[in-house]
Amino acid sequence: MKLDIIAGARPNFMKIAPIIEALEKVSDKIQYRLIHTGQHYDKKMSGNFFEQLGIPEPDVNLEVGSGTQAEQTGRIMERYEALLLKEPCDWMLCVGDVTSTMACSIAAKKLNLGVIHVEGGIRSHDLTMPEEINRMVTDSITDVFYTTSEVANENLRQLGHEDAKIRYVGNTMIDTLLKNMPRFIKPAAWDEHDLKEKGYFVMTLHRPANVDEEAQLKNLIDEIVKGSHGMPIVFPVHPRTAKMLKGIGIHADNLHMIEPLGYLEFNYLVKHSFAVVTDSGGITEETTVMKVPCMTLRDNTERPETITIGTNELVGTNPDNVAPYMEKLHKSEWKAGDIPYLWDGKTAERIVEDLLEL
Rank of each mutant, 00 (worst) to 15 (best):
L314Q: 00
M77E: 07
V277T: 09
K196E: 13
I16K: 00
G65A: 05
G121W: 09
G316T: 02
I141K: 08
E154F: 04
T284E: 12
L356P: 00
L342I: 07
E213S: 08
G65S: 12
D344R: 02
T128A: 13
K243P: 01
T204I: 09
P293D: 14
T311H: 07
L93G: 02
I309E: 06
I248E: 07
I20P: 09
L53E: 03
L355P: 06
Q72M: 12
F145Q: 03
G345K: 05
P11A: 02
G170Y: 09
G67F: 01
G230S: 00
R157C: 12
A107L: 10
V64Y: 05
E192T: 13
G65Y: 00
M290C: 04
Y341W: 15
I224R: 04
M244S: 15
L53F: 08
K218H: 07
G65M: 02
E357R: 15
V276N: 08
S273E: 10
G227V: 05
I35G: 03
E214N: 14
D143N: 11
L269H: 08
M173I: 10
Y263N: 07
H161E: 07
P319M: 03
L156A: 11
V315M: 06
R10N: 08
A348E: 00
T241N: 03
A348R: 00
E286R: 12
T99R: 12
V352C: 03
V234A: 03
M14V: 15
K226H: 13
I55R: 01
V118F: 01
L269N: 11
N61G: 14
E57D: 11
L314M: 01
H251K: 12
I233N: 00
G54M: 04
A348S: 10
K165C: 06
A70K: 05
G114F: 13
T317H: 04
C89A: 14
E51F: 01
S273P: 11
L358E: 11
P340V: 02
L159C: 12
S140T: 06
T99Y: 08
